[in-house]
Amino acid sequence: MRWAIDHTSRERLQDQIADCVRRGVATGELDVGEQLPPAAELGAALSVDRNTVLAAYRQLRDDGVLEFRRGRGARVASGGPDLSAVTEAARSLVATARLHGLGRNELIRIIKELT
């Protein structure tokens, strides 16, 4: 699982971590039932506090993305939101952009303008 957070961004770190998990679930990098790293270990790797990671995990649990089990850590929930439609749409968007000669950065700029 790849994580990327920006310490200088204005966006809260816990939201950035939660977004990483959401992206992982959407792209299929995280499978249903897969166990996420313990908060202390991920926190140490990302140079954030353990409680920030826990806050992100809790936020994801409340959204139904993760489930907590005693002694087994945080896992990707089976009944989580189905984002496969979004992934599919994004895939066709990328294909269309490529057809029109648009690069990744241009595409990202267009999306940023829209959202």
Binding site: W3, A4, D6, T8, S9, R23, T27, L46
Partner: peptide
């Protein structure tokens, strides 16, 4: 699988895995 890294300074790109 490609995963776009976030641009900008202060970026922490980390990989975690369990086997």
């Amino acid at each position: 699988m490609t995963s776009p890294p976030l641009a900008g300074d202060g970026t922490h790109a980390v990989y975690t895995g369990r086997t």
